[in-house]
Amino acid sequence: MKTHTVSHFAKWQRWRAGRPWLGSCLAAVLAWAATVFSGQGQGSGELLTVALTFSAFTVLVSLGQMLVISVGPGNADLSIPSSIALSGAVAMLVMDGSNAMIVPGILAAVLVGALVGVFNFSLIRVLSIPPIIATLAGSLIVMSVAIAIGRGLKIKPPPLFSDFMAMRLFGIPLLAVVVLAVSIAIALMLERTVLGRSIEAVGQNDRAAGLAGMRVELTRFWAYVICAALAGLAGALISGFSGGNSLDQGQEYILLTIAVVVIGGTVVSGGAPCVPGIWSAAMFMFLLVAMLNAAGAGPGLRMLLTGLIIIGVIVAASSPGKR
């Protein structure tokens, strides 16, 4: 009898281990329910729609951060806010309010992002310093460029672009559908392509991956470039959504992306990305703020709790280590 329950428990544990996004998904549902039942927020459906819109931006940027974190311990891109600021400004400049230039504008933003990624990776390689410091130091320069070209820029996004950003299909924001497509593409890339498999292998053990014939540094290069390019895309979309670019439009994404990746069940030391977790964690982070707002918490308390929750989640996800 006893062995029977143990095996059930083991089975449950194995089932859970294969689904690292489960916890954040549950947490998101709880936060949503708490906000709705507190009665001060909007209606439940409306709240979900708003959450989907804002989470879509978070997901887009966090997918890139997930790839970077997955290529090994110590890898993270802290230049995301600068990339978003710069690409937003570039997108608005290229589009210049005309519908015909929407696609070139978005492409230019993605290209600018990708260039920031190349810059980041070359700093990491040439200076051989931890990526955290390299991307942070490099981001100061990128930010300066963004300030120089983007300050006082008052270009409205083309009307078609704004409309597209606000469009809904049966209550679901079109933006969320687009980002879902990107997520599926990234998931397929991780599952099916050489690059995707290399990202996981390099993250798990770069020496073994190198000996197995994978190109370790090239894999890392692509992770940083894809991450920054996605941030560039997000910069253009955010500018379109909020009626023009601003220099601090990416500010919050530095901690938010890392929090979303970690809470979503991606392993922090690399080698095990989790795409569904990005969605549930992004929804959770938005709904958490909505819940705290509905409960009347100010910005100080909100930051305090966000920090504690991030630490709590990684403590809960860890296991006692031995030396």
Binding site: L255, L301, R302, T306, G307, L308, I311, I314
Partner: peptide
């Protein structure tokens, strides 16, 4: 990074 938000919040 999490702590930095705790300090800032306080």
């Amino acid at each position: 990074l999490g702590l930095s938000f705790v300090w800032l919040g306080c």
